[in-house]
Design a protein around this nucleic acid. Structure first.
Lengths: 111, 111
DNA sequence: ACTTAACGTAAGTGATATCTTACGGTAAGT
DNA sequence: ACTTACCGTAAGATATCACTTACGTTAAGT
């Protein structure tokens, strides 16, 4: 099971638009830092800082190839966030359905 | 299908610890604002502001009962975030598995 | 009608986040 | 050995965020 304690960090990590773009870029293809910086409206050091946040959240994994640092998505971090959402989704689903049904029933009774 | 364009807003909404606590509280039981403020280390207006963010992210739904405003989780917003994660999870899973296999193979060859 | 309860919003403040430029370190190429 | 490529970190500036107090509104109770 994925470590659910790291899930909250993930939300903070994906809260920033630039980091989401990086995340989506890595989903398509593992990339180096400079490679990511090209095509982004921020500097290369900024990308490094974003990758650090993503890494500490357990969402990406880093490996070195010479001086190049290759980053790729870590599915375990993503799974942790999914699990966190799922843990609440079920109860929310039931409660909301019950509420929606009652809401509809009340409106029908009023017509 | 849930509107995937609202998903990113959700990450920002759940990035704050206090909002996550509110979120978890609502998962257990729909509640009014003052009711939520009790037991939280922040003021009632702060809770109102947090609920506004959660609402704009599509994560909660508001209904009025007299002067009391009842908030409950909106499963559609949660589903949107889940879908966003799932969209990247699959490709990340495959790429990472391939990477991990190759990594292990390399290490075996070195022994 | 008056009071009370519950809530949202405005304004201001302190903390945090994100960005930049500057710098230092490591590995590869010549 | 020297240069070049690639990267992380430090320091500082600006923008954004979360919080508080003060205020106005609406609905219920007496």
């Amino acid at each position: 099971m994925a470590n659910i304690k790291t899930a909250p960090e993930g939300f903070g990590a994906l809260a920033d638009p630039t980091r989401r773009t990086i995340f989506e870029r890595l989903a398509k293809k593992p990339s180096a830092v400079g490679e990511l910086a090209r095509g982004l409206p921020v500097s290369r050091p900024a990308v490094s800082q974003h990758l650090k946040v993503l890494k500490e959240a357990g969402l990406v994994h880093e490996t070195a190839e010479g001086t190049r640092h290759i980053y790729r998505l870590d599915p375990r971090g993503i799974a942790a966030m999914r699990d966190w959402l799922d843990a609440h989704w079920t109860s929310a689903m039931e409660a909301f359905r019950e509420f929606a049904d009652r809401q509809q029933h009340d409106e029908e009774g009023r017509e």
